[in-house]
Design a protein around this nucleic acid. Sequence first.
DNA 1: AGGATCGTTGACAGCGCTACCAGCAACGAC
DNA 2: GTCGTTGCTGGTAGCGCTGTCAACGATCCT
Lengths: 364, 364
Amino acid sequence: MGRKRTKSGKIRLAEVAELAGVSPITASRFFRNPEALSVAKRTRVESAARELGYVPNLAARALASQRTEVIGVLIPSLTNNVFSDVLRGIYDASEGSRYSIQLSNTRYSILQEEKLLRLFLAQKPAGLIVTGIDQTTESRAMLEAADCPIVQIMEIGPSPIDMMIGFSHYDAARAAIAHLFDQGRRRIGFVGARMDPRVQRRLDGYVAAMKDAGLFDQRLTVTTATPTSVTLGGALFADLLAREPDIDAVFCANDDLALGVLFECRRREIAVPEQIAIVGFNDLEFMASSVPTLTSVRTNRYEMGSTAAAMLIEAIEGKRPEQPVLDLGFTVIERQSSQMQRPAGPRPPEWSAAVQNDSVTNDP
Amino acid sequence: MGRKRTKSGKIRLAEVAELAGVSPITASRFFRNPEALSVAKRTRVESAARELGYVPNLAARALASQRTEVIGVLIPSLTNNVFSDVLRGIYDASEGSRYSIQLSNTRYSILQEEKLLRLFLAQKPAGLIVTGIDQTTESRAMLEAADCPIVQIMEIGPSPIDMMIGFSHYDAARAAIAHLFDQGRRRIGFVGARMDPRVQRRLDGYVAAMKDAGLFDQRLTVTTATPTSVTLGGALFADLLAREPDIDAVFCANDDLALGVLFECRRREIAVPEQIAIVGFNDLEFMASSVPTLTSVRTNRYEMGSTAAAMLIEAIEGKRPEQPVLDLGFTVIERQSSQMQRPAGPRPPEWSAAVQNDSVTNDP
DNA sequence: AGGATCGTTGACAGCGCTACCAGCAACGAC
DNA sequence: GTCGTTGCTGGTAGCGCTGTCAACGATCCT
């Protein structure tokens, strides 16, 4: 027969069109904008494509249309639990759409981010998701010049490049400290690691809250550029304790540090919360089942990822959101580690979310 | 001037060739196989490309060459710490190469895996990394028919599709149980969640070890299909304890469960390791700083990812490894939670790897 | 010396798809 | 009846790059 096949035996659009009895361009339109076809041709093309098992060639499509269906995602870490939740949201929201995710790891370096951005932009992505609001001037210029929608995630700030979804780390930290004040704590330490911009803003929130209460003392804060870990939490807390033995609470920049502090307390036989209250950040799963259970600031990481991807896809397809900046808020989840009175005796773990004691919500 | 530009103002290969005074095809060769050019032309093309800021159009390249420079990665979970380590290895090893990573999440479903595989294969990836050895018959057939290198990761098994890198979960579990036997434990429980194939093989190893010692008892194992979590570890352990109050050790299929068991012991004031020994699996970071520190089976997850990607890239470029199946082994890291005698008094956390008490190594 | 071989280069012809524009029928307004 | 207008369809002409083949001079071997 006259129909020619590509070497690899792959079905091309032309074959589909031939079987459907339409021109290739009509078949092409079926995949891009089915509404433009008459119902008759639409069903003909559809069944022809199904019958032949047609799979579009993305490279050809990208070349001809001068754009790709790739969403670039730049995150600072692949190991941090926080980002794995965000990523899962992004992947879930993009699944089923025509867009594929291209992920890159900036390793908390804005220079690396700039390099990767240049790489991404050269391939004309359909959209971009970048972490945070602290890009280099150069990166920012490139992003502003890019002709694709962009979502900044993880936090919100004053001048969005395009869209933005996150929450205020500063406010979240202030809320955590306010909770500790409510519980009668005064000498509240801060333990932070990595000190990326978001952790820095949590520190800023802590400092502001303490200053407002006239309780700030530089020696109450222990930070390091070292990547965070549970072990590090214990070590930093040990440093803090050596310097300031009279603290009555510790606010940890993340939950791993908080767990490390808890273990260190146990090691030193410091009663939590009687002697020292502990508050973490992010509300990872284990916080609800440790002994004592650990207070933390819950953040909506999965929703951040899924909403960011969904907003981006909408924007790519021309439906810009009415609300380009979205504050997902946070919730201080109060648990045993920061209660004024620790419940006596053993207690079953918080087995369902319903048991959890949500309060100090900031859902905008 | 006669030189024409693409609408977007992008530099094309033809421009580079013109500036360098060579034909486009020679310029093209420079990017694919520089050794084939004379040194003179090579430097001319190189400086022309740099001067113009040339960025190759990947879509055009893929279309013309009928292959992509994409490595497909199929993993079952984006949240599991285990996979984030593997992923980091994969991304690190692919960075700097010409290949980009296309990630998809099978969510522990081999049907989903099959679907994604079909999608990937249709785009002719340069290579593929798939998790485990339990593909559907259909998936396996597709993989065997695929004309690209493939690496199976996370475990090793009898009939590799192509390359394979991992370790024996069965042997690792046996080693963990052997360690508990060494410590005088006899009534050893098993706690497992999710029960994916690799967890199942850990259970098999446990069962075999117990049977060999004449100590197997079906009621000692508690498993569930529910995704794993720290809280779940505590709950499963509670079930086990209710049924078999006289157990003297628990082998947990992963570290989250082990941490949950530890917390549950604390809640019930069960002394670890005096009354019950705990052994986890994977050796996540927190295992070394909990109180007591937790014994676990260390697996080389990052290396698994980075080696898999490196092997794959080598294979794509024609240099097949002499050793297509690589056993990365495991190590039982013995810590306080399973020692015969628990060290008295508080003790600083294991601050560096050097402090750790490695033994029962199986580095092949 | 003649032929074979190697290293280097270029011409040509697509890869599979879509942007752009033109055509054509059907329809309604003036 | 003429002129838009709308809805649908098709032809043409690439998108930017590389596979294939051929050509060329230089070198090597018998």
